[in-house]
Design a binder for these strands. Structure first.
Lengths: 148, 148
DNA sequence: TGACAATATATTGTGCACAACTTAATTGTT
DNA sequence: AACAATTAAGTTGTGCACAATATATTGTCA
């Protein structure tokens, strides 16, 4: 007897999960040339985006929008502190929380980062409207998966 | 002087890269309840999909469709070998290549896996047509990013 | 007030992901 | 045949990602 051939719904190229997984890695690679000169990794860049928008967040106020836990963030933030992007200090009102503040250096990187979005838009090979629509659909998809 | 506020194109919620990154993690989490009973992680499941479709692949014939390198695959395949899903053996014609073959156990898991795609379709909250179209757009996006 | 639950972060251990490098086998050229 | 170039895997080191657990602070309520 021979093996049953794998059905189409089990083929790698038909998996939306893999398309998303693979695109996520492609993004991280595509960002690399812009982030490496700044000394940032891709997840660290995501943290910087949040801090540029609002500084002095707690670990939780980073964890929630990023959908990450302290097990991931704590060592990441320690590396970023060591690299001089930010400082970690105890909140005076509530000694449980750690507050994250950008250093002047970390703050100053925003100017360089401003050029990245346009560059990535070009590399995406899509126009802004299509990309925005795609983003919304992917956000919806993520939301559905998370709450199920 | 005060800090310049971060421009909209640098906000986390407007990044398509983050939407994709976040959805990828959400997928891995959503697959967990189905994969854990089989003893598979999500990346291991991707390898199984390829082997169910065609057994006896070389490491490279896994690496290419997955867009992974041997630095990732070799230890992953060793773990899968240890767990009894597959075997790793030298190709007799070309002693450089390692051939990966499913064990009977590994082959047999396909029956359980057959139920996964429908379950995930439900969790996605989208119909098949919309999901297929979305997959194609995400695949295109990944392709653009990789070649630029 | 004094136990106890809740909250916030940190720690530990495992498994990806990838750059950079190494090792070994094959191919191509002369 | 000799040997450089190529190819295929494997190794090493760093940085995520997350489950499970630990620690410490704050809130609650009997």
């Amino acid at each position: 007897m021979t093996h049953s051939p794998s059905p189409p719904e089990l083929r790698l190229e038909n998996q939306i999960c893999f398309a998303v997984y693979s695109a996520a890695h492609a993004f991280a690679q595509a960002y690399r040339p812009w982030l490496e000169p700044m000394g940032l990794t891709y997840p660290q860049y995501l943290v910087m985006l949040l801090l540029w928008e609002r500084d002095g967040r707690s670990v939780n106020e980073l964890a929630q929008p990023l959908q990450l836990d302290s097990g991931t963030l704590t060592p990441l933030l320690k590396r970023m502190e060591k690299a001089g992007f930010l400082t970690r200090s105890r909140d005076e009102k509530d000694e449980r929380v750690t507050r994250i503040h950008l250093t002047d250096f970390g703050q100053s990187l925003m100017e360089q980062a401003r050029r990245i979005p346009v560059a990535m838009l070009c590399q995406s090979g899509m126009d802004l409207n299509r990309l925005t629509e795609l983003r919304e659909q992917v956000q919806d998809l993520g939301k559905s998966l998370r709450q199920a």
